[in-house]
Design a protein around this nucleic acid. Sequence first.
DNA 1: TCAAAAGTGTTTGAATTACACCCATGT
DNA 2: ACATGGGTGTAATTCAAACACTTTTGA
Lengths: 235, 235
Amino acid sequence: MLELYSEQTKCLVALDSIIFGFDGSKLKLLLVKRGIEESKNVWSLMGGWLQPNEGLDQAANRILENQTGLQNVYLEQVNTFGAPDRDPVERTVSVTYFALINVADYDLFNTKAEQAKWFDFDDLPELLFDHEQMVKNAIQRLRNKAAFHPLGFELLPEKFTLPQLQVLYEAIFDMPFDKRNFSRKILSSGLLTKLDEKQKGFSKKGAYLYKLNSQTSEKAASSILYFVPSIDSLL
Amino acid sequence: MLELYSEQTKCLVALDSIIFGFDGSKLKLLLVKRGIEESKNVWSLMGGWLQPNEGLDQAANRILENQTGLQNVYLEQVNTFGAPDRDPVERTVSVTYFALINVADYDLFNTKAEQAKWFDFDDLPELLFDHEQMVKNAIQRLRNKAAFHPLGFELLPEKFTLPQLQVLYEAIFDMPFDKRNFSRKILSSGLLTKLDEKQKGFSKKGAYLYKLNSQTSEKAASSILYFVPSIDSLL
DNA sequence: TCAAAAGTGTTTGAATTACACCCATGT
DNA sequence: ACATGGGTGTAATTCAAACACTTTTGA
């Protein structure tokens, strides 16, 4: 009955990250072309292998930092794929993470990834292996999380305007919101501080800038927002 | 940059299931003692190793069926643990699943597990490795899922009464509900059919039996309930 | 007849939605 | 002066929460 450790087969363990970004108007996904895929017209998620002395979260962070140079990125485990033939080269179990980064923070020319590109989330190319399913699971998780936690701020600069935030939420949930109701709901959470400063250059009037109340973004992600656009969007 | 497959270290991949049950009044958790732990006063989740030609869901199902004899159990992947030293014997990555079974369906004397026991969910013994954290994640997932999907029915017999269902939901969310509001909300979902039959033996008056509308339990789990007891309980 | 659980409606407050006009400013 | 986007309030509705009495029947 007891299956001994020594007799068990072992697998490669990969980590793949679904990296969401926001460019001010649309939700984006960062994809790369790696060694094998370079020639083909197939893109893949940013990923790498689990190393002997690191945990999963740690590995996902390392891979992201190695390939983008970014530290302290919001990363959350989504789920794990392990169909026997998902990777034709060798049996691989892949743990996925979703990441949120501010597109402006990440200079693509700095990347150490072979080839990296931001794609519009609603216009993605063909993806490697089961990466499309990984993306589907991740967007669903992002929506669920964003409905109850102030996650979206990870995708914006430190100071942002309410219209920017609204556009972001509209991109995440792929639905329009009423700006009066939106601002009331967001402001009533008490999470934001209005600054004495207006955004310049975009609109003539200029919109007030806000910042997250003095809490690290990590804490923010575990505090409560409760912005539920509609139950259906959470599936 | 490209890390070749052949150079990568491999890990054992385990599957561990957090098996919830319901005995009519309390939420239960099924735990086992396996080889190594038998002597010690430590219990563990039901688990096993991933085999070469099976996927993760498939493996979790196989292990559950092997050890309990139950088929078609509701199983859902929760998340994956991989701290380097989580298993002192050998590096192991463990994918967790939560399972819902009707306690009455599972005869403990039939078990092929070395030693298996239902524990009250709110009075668990010391658990192996990181299994306590696995359980915490699973109960949170169960609550989230049960708030939006008619999951709880998996834990009840085919025919059940509203009071039974309410006790179950109270056990899952660990909070009391008002029976008038509860029955209105549940019935307004349209998921239940009232039968012309009353439960006998428990109460003097007898409560009407209900069943899930003709849909397999799998389909039921993906339909929508929207029973949100309170946002806080979803964290 | 009494005890124990089942069943059932109404009222109140809170939250969500829908909706339209004026403001500030750069050109 | 005008066009563009920013900002704000109210009324109507829906939903959730609180709350108590009557019914049935086995003992």
